[in-house]
């Protein structure tokens, strides 16, 4: 709670890099209940609308020679389909719609968050934790359903020296349970860090002396964030595929 006093005593140069992540109720000022329509809801809805526009309206022509939107939609489809097929094998194709859902949601949420004054749902740890732990729980349940108790063999390295096996097993179990944490915090952290850094630079832009540098910095970081937004969606998706592969083929 140290910042509470610090930020207000600074006077001219005020940093509130995290204020952009405050959810605000769109209708009424009351406390935010679980059903309130907030700016989170708005930008999530816009993401759904964009997915709908791209994947449904874009492909409504069903043309053999695709229009621009249709070829973008087909490109994304082919990209994710190939990723699932390459990483998980033929058995993974069943789960392709779920992975596609994750990818498109994260991609659009990340890119929409780059619009100035917008809200970035993927920077909220609650949101990414649902995504990450959702993948974790789904993959674990799937692993036990498909492989039974032999799913636990994933932690027992048969080709390691016998002395090291229990130690490796402990490490493997820990790393298995760290997966959802790193999986979700990676996404939230990247998005949050980028947006917060932009806000910090924007705070420096208030000083006339350094404002050109600050604005150049904002531009550069924005470019980096455009890259990061795509890469993080890709990374989240491919890691989901990798975890799914572990559930489908636990013995490699």
């Amino acid at each position: 709670m140290a910042t509470e006093t610090d930020t207000h005593s600074e006077g001219g140069l005020v940093f509130h890099p995290l204020d952009q992540f405050i959810p605000k109720s769109l209708f009424g000022d009351g406390p935010i209940a679980w059903y309130s329509i907030t700016n989170v809801t708005l930008w999530l809805a816009i993401a759904v609308a964009c997915v709908f526009l791209l994947m449904v309206m874009g492909t409504s022509g069903r043309k053999i020679i695709p229009s621009r939107l249709q070829s973008v939609a087909e490109l994304i489809y082919g990209f994710i389909y190939k990723m699932v097929e390459d990483v998980c094998g033929k058995e993974g194709i069943k789960y392709f719609p779920y992975i596609m859902t994750l990818f498109l949601f994260i991609l659009f949420a990340n890119y929409l968050a780059l619009i100035p004054m917008s809200y970035s749902p993927t920077s909220m740890i609650a949101v990414t934790a649902i995504l990450g732990f959702g993948v974790f729980i789904a993959v674990t349940v799937l692993g036990f359903v498909l492989n039974g108790a032999s799913f636990l063999g994933m932690f027992w390295m048969k080709d390691a020296p016998a002395v090291l096996r229990p130690i490796i097993a402990v490490i493997e179990v820990i790393s298995y349970f760290v997966r959802p944490v790193s999986h979700s915090i990676r996404l939230a952290g990247n998005v949050m860090a980028g947006h917060a850094v932009i806000k910090v630079f924007a705070g420096f832009a208030a000083l006339t002396l350094v404002s050109p540098v600050a604005i150049l910095g904002i531009t550069a970081i924005y470019g980096l964030e455009v890259l990061v937004a795509g890469i993080q969606a890709y990374v989240f998706t491919i890691l989901t595929c990798v975890y799914l592969k572990d559930a489908l083929h636990p013995h490699h």
Binding site: P23, I32, A33, W34, Y35, S36, T38, V40, T41, L44, A45, A47, V48, V51, P97, Y98, T101, L104, F105, P121, M124, A126, V127, I130, L131
Partner: peptide, 14 residues
């Protein structure tokens, strides 16, 4: 709030 609307979004996209 976020969790609820996220789930709605994911189901809608799915």
């Amino acid at each position: 709030n976020q969790v609820f609307w996220l789930l709605v979004t994911l189901v809608a996209i799915y």
